[in-house]
């Protein structure tokens, strides 16, 4: 988009039902501010309190996951590229809310993440609760990352978690995650 005319971008956002999106380096204060904005927006609509808190909760978990993961990788030389790779999108699809996130993922981390997500996708609500309880007892990683976030999202999600791994280069893939409330 080389001109100042943003109508195409706006049309695209509207077409996809996107209420809010952030793409770029996440800081804790950005996560807080966007969380406040999405809650104010949802409070102004007719959405039920429980759905509002679920959308907010999934947004926070996704944004903090992206931030925590990227800050662990950031020590390397590709700091700026990695930091800028995070994205979180909140969209409305008729009566549902869709919260999605994405970030660059080191290829070596992909198999474990895929296995974890496939396991979550195979479990019903009772199975997810049992796994959540088990993981709740595991010690907290001091860098953040409780290992509980994805399980919690799967418990809240109206449909199995959807994810995709897109080819980027020799070192990275792009991880996308989609949760429906």
């Amino acid at each position: 988009m080389s001109t100042l005319d943003l109508t195409r971008l706006q049309d695209e956002l509207r077409h996809q039902g996107i209420l809010m999106s952030f793409s770029g380096p996440f800081s804790h204060s950005i996560i807080e501010e966007l969380g406040k904005a999405i809650r104010h927006y949802l409070e102004s609509t007719e959405v039920a309190g429980s759905a509002l808190m679920d959308v907010f909760a999934v947004y926070i978990e996704q944004a903090q996951n992206v931030r925590n993961y990227i800050s662990r990788l950031e020590a390397g030389p590709e700091k700026t590229r990695l930091a800028g790779s995070g994205i979180v999108v909140i969209a409305q699809d008729e009566q549902r809310y869709v919260i999605s996130s994405g970030n660059l993922l080191d290829r070596t981390d992909a198999p474990a993440l895929t296995a974890h997500l496939e396991r979550l996708r195979s479990l019903d609500k009772a199975g997810l609760k049992a796994l959540y309880k088990e993981q709740m007892r595991q010690p907290l990683n001091p860098q953040g990352g409780a290992g509980l976030g994805l399980i919690g999202m799967a418990r809240k999600s109206a449909a199995p978690l959807e994810y995709a791994l897109g080819d980027v280069d020799e070192r990275y893939v792009f991880f996308s995650l989609r949760v429906v409330i």
Binding site: M53, F56, I60, M136, L140, A146, G147, L148, G152
Partner: peptide
Amino acid sequence: VRYLNSSSTKVMLN
């Protein structure tokens, strides 16, 4: 509490 993220949930259990 109105909301606990996943790390805070573990902390609360502790």
